[in-house]
């Protein structure tokens, strides 16, 4: 029977959400196509992790070893390529995360299997698998197939599939010994560091006024600060603003920054790359101001204003101040 591999991503003893999302998609495909789902866990002291997913897969293969305590793409690659060689799973799903994107390309070269990254859906059409993905920051979609190969590797974008359980499975648990005799320790883990510490916690704010690349110049940020102040809200931003050092990292909303859940999220000059939107998905409503009517943000925002932010923001601020003066 054909098999789908799901590579479990976990960090500091906790399963990452992407793992549940991949298991949902694998489960859905397995139901439809009568495949089985096999999850693979590499790490150390994994009991609670195994318990969390034992009803979501048909088989769980566990490599529990001190030497797997920290993620290491090369060691993962060596172990997984052996397993893939042995079982020939039709699909192998890996998270499109920082770790997953270090593992998948080298695993692809090592196994000779094709790789499609950052997939937002997997379809089975005319007897072959098609990966749906985006290009040009979400402005274009593409369907990718895998030449003559029957097997492939896919990395899956975070947040596109539900975290729910699908179907009813009871996993057979298979413990394996650490299979490598020679580990070339090319890369040594030192420590984790908090990169987004700061005095303002945007994750607690009820109203966020968030600024993106569309603001153009550093001095224009004051415009956003003034609007936030008038509204009694807090300023946040998208990645390009932090990259340019115009605002500190702890104000960044998105995959690599903070996840926020305000009642209202006002996005000014933000195009709406998924890395940003995934951090804002907890917002009650999103109001977007952007002069590009094709900006992806208008696909997820509740309200949109297609206009020059420099025309809208000052008028809005004045009106709010007037109202508050009462």
């Amino acid at each position: 029977m054909s098999e789908i591999f799901v590579i479990v991503e976990h960090r500091l003893g906790e399963i990452r959400d992407i793992t549940f999302e991949m298991l949902w998609k694998a489960g859905e495909l397995a139901q439809k196509l009568s495949y089985t789902v096999t999850t693979i866990i590499l790490g150390h002291e994994l009991n609670s992790i195994v318990d969390n997913i034992s009803d979501r897969a048909d088989k769980i293969i566990i490599f529990d070893d001190e030497r797997l305590k920290n993620f290491n793409a090369d060691i993962y690659k060596e172990i997984l390529s052996g397993l893939i060689e042995e079982s020939k799973p039709t699909l192998t799903l890996i998270g499109n995360t920082s770790w997953g994107m270090e593992l998948a390309p080298c695993l692809s070269v090592k196994t000779g299997l094709p790789l499609a990254t950052d997939c937002i859906d997997i379809m089975f059409k005319d007897d072959k698998f098609i990966a749906q993905r985006q290009m040009f920051n979400g402005k274009i979609f593409s369907n990718v197939s895998f030449a003559e190969s029957k097997e492939c590797l896919l990395t899956i974008r975070s947040g596109v599939f539900p975290k729910d359980k699908i179907g009813d499975r009871q996993a057979e648990i298979i413990q394996k010994d650490f299979p490598l005799t020679d580990i070339p320790l090319k890369k040594n883990f030192i420590e984790f560091v908090e990169t987004a510490a700061g005095d303002v916690d945007i994750s607690q704010a009820e109203l966020l006024v968030s600024v993106g690349r569309g603001i153009g110049e550093e001095e224009n940020i004051s415009l956003i600060k003034e609007l936030a102040e008038a509204l009694g809200g807090v300023v946040s931003c998208s990645r390009p603003i932090v990259d340019k050092n115009w605002l500190p990292k702890h104000l960044q909303v998105g995959t690599s920054g903070k996840s926020v859940s305000p009642k209202v999220y006002i996005a000014v000059g933000i195009s709406g790359a998924f890395q940003h939107m995934s951090g804002a998905s907890g917002a009650g409503i999103i109001i977007a101001v952007n002069k590009d009517p094709k900006a992806p943000i208008f696909r997820t925002a509740d309200y949109g204003i297609v206009d020059d932010l420099f025309k809208i923001v000052p008028v809005l601020k004045e009106k709010v101040l007037e109202l508050k003066k009462g």
Partner: peptide
Amino acid sequence: TSELEGGLGEISLID
């Protein structure tokens, strides 16, 4: 320092 999700960085030493 490699950037991970959720404002975490991972420091490693490579040859």
